[in-house]
Simulated assay, not measured.
Amino acid sequence: MNSELTEEEMRRALFGTPQPKEQVSTPLVLEPVPEIVFTKPAEAPLAKKKVTKAFTPRLRVTLRVGNEFEGKMTELIHEAD
């Protein structure tokens, strides 16, 4: 068996022989697109309701930082909505 194959022989071994694709040219037929216009239905103006602010929970993050093991600790607190 020949251990030195050309690139073309390797391609044929991996992918098989290339089959020529048949080129069939079909004319593109453009179908007429119906023109559609979307409109919003007329609505009666509604009275605007006053929105009351609901309770928004706050997030509180507490971080205790120290430079020594079981030594002086610094506490940082961050609050966010």
Rank of each mutant, 00 (worst) to 15 (best):
1 M>I: 04
2 N>I: 00
2 N>D: 07
2 N>S: 08
3 S>P: 01
3 S>G: 01
4 E>I: 01
4 E>Y: 00
5 L>A: 04
6 T>K: 03
6 T>C: 04
6 T>S: 13
7 E>H: 10
7 E>R: 13
7 E>K: 12
7 E>I: 12
8 E>Y: 02
8 E>K: 09
8 E>D: 08
8 E>F: 01
8 E>L: 06
9 E>W: 00
9 E>D: 12
9 E>N: 02
11 R>P: 02
11 R>M: 14
11 R>W: 09
13 A>T: 07
14 L>T: 12
14 L>I: 13
15 F>A: 10
15 F>E: 11
15 F>P: 03
16 G>K: 02
16 G>V: 04
17 T>W: 02
17 T>C: 05
18 P>S: 12
22 E>W: 13
22 E>P: 12
22 E>Q: 15
22 E>D: 14
22 E>F: 11
23 Q>Y: 14
23 Q>R: 10
25 S>K: 15
25 S>D: 09
27 P>T: 12
28 L>T: 05
28 L>M: 05
28 L>A: 07
28 L>I: 14
29 V>K: 02
30 L>F: 03
30 L>V: 04
30 L>N: 02
31 E>Q: 04
31 E>M: 01
32 P>I: 00
32 P>C: 00
32 P>H: 00
33 V>W: 01
35 E>I: 10
35 E>T: 11
35 E>A: 11
36 I>W: 04
37 V>R: 11
37 V>P: 02
37 V>K: 10
37 V>I: 08
40 K>H: 11
41 P>S: 08
42 A>S: 08
42 A>E: 07
42 A>L: 07
43 E>K: 15
43 E>F: 12
44 A>N: 06
44 A>M: 07
45 P>K: 01
46 L>C: 05
46 L>R: 06
47 A>H: 06
47 A>F: 09
47 A>E: 14
47 A>V: 12
48 K>I: 12
48 K>N: 09
48 K>M: 09
49 K>C: 08
51 V>D: 07
52 T>P: 00
53 K>N: 06
53 K>E: 10
54 A>H: 06
54 A>L: 11
55 F>R: 00
55 F>E: 03
57 P>S: 04
57 P>L: 02
57 P>M: 03
58 R>C: 05
59 L>I: 14
59 L>E: 09
61 V>P: 04
61 V>D: 13
61 V>F: 06
61 V>Q: 13
61 V>M: 11
62 T>N: 10
63 L>C: 11
64 R>F: 03
64 R>Y: 06
64 R>H: 09
65 V>M: 10
67 N>E: 15
67 N>S: 13
67 N>D: 15
68 E>P: 01
69 F>Y: 11
69 F>R: 06
70 E>Q: 13
71 G>K: 14
72 K>C: 08
73 M>S: 08
73 M>L: 12
76 L>H: 15
77 I>L: 14
77 I>Y: 10
78 H>S: 10
78 H>C: 10
79 E>T: 09
79 E>V: 05
80 A>E: 14
81 D>N: 07
81 D>Y: 04
81 D>F: 06
